[in-house]
Design a binder for these strands. Sequence first.
DNA 1: CTATCTGCAAATCTTTTGCAACGGA
DNA 2: TCCGTTGCAAAAGATTTGCAGATAG
Lengths: 149, 149
Amino acid sequence: MTAYHRGVDTSLRSTLHQRGLRMTPQRQLVLDAVCDLGHATPEQICTQVQASAPAVNITTIYRTLDLLERIGLVRHTHLGHGAPTYSEQEHQHVHLVCHSCGRITEAPTDLLDELAHRLRGDGFELDVTHLALSGLCTSCQHAPQDDLA
Amino acid sequence: MTAYHRGVDTSLRSTLHQRGLRMTPQRQLVLDAVCDLGHATPEQICTQVQASAPAVNITTIYRTLDLLERIGLVRHTHLGHGAPTYSEQEHQHVHLVCHSCGRITEAPTDLLDELAHRLRGDGFELDVTHLALSGLCTSCQHAPQDDLA
DNA sequence: CTATCTGCAAATCTTTTGCAACGGA
DNA sequence: TCCGTTGCAAAAGATTTGCAGATAG
């Protein structure tokens, strides 16, 4: 069930040890959940982790996500509405969020290359993955649209 | 002190009446605050409103912002970190947020025209103003950078 | 006069913090 | 053993809801 892309297990333990941090089962479970779920909120990650280890507290989820981000194994993206979502560091793409149905589409990051280049000229170094782009997906453009219900 | 662009006062009353809604001093104050502040969080708007009308409750701020958005007078943008910010509907621009120092820069929306066109070809209608773009501003690119402190 | 609005208090929800016990190296 | 980590409970912060009284039209 768990997707171990390029030996995540091994690199977690060593990455932690490099910094004098300890390997724990909770940390492995959180990292696994992030990889399995693609992009998920702390809440969703907690549910996933608790499926196999019910005793893990949500506080630990928050602390671990924070730590995994600091050591560069995961990143978080703000999709607009509520909670931020976490995903693997390597799994880079631009998120397109439909603000009508909430559906999230992933697009290749080079979609923003031209924009990034233009902004760099103005002194702004764009981080393509941190924020999503929002708009209307195909189906919602043609849907009745209840005038901002 | 208050900036009345193109007769906001008159249009608020009539826009409300068109929909069977009532004009109240609180609604005028909230709209004025949004216009004055540019892009502000509900909290900031509340502070601004309470400067002239201390009795106005933050609950009313939230309800009024929601209402003003539904009738198309204001819009909100997610800048990434915490709270959404509200601004006038007409005051359109792209927000660039530095995720190191948090500074917000405004850029013309036509910066995203090419991207919007490309996405439209894929069936996604981009809303340029709803989400900010994040990255590093000039000064933070050259700052020491404490490795994700 | 009536239905809409507002203020207040309390409920929710999400995230953070303090602290004692636990457990990895 | 030592100190980083965890779980629990409580705090903190943001937003929502229920309800009775105020008020626009």
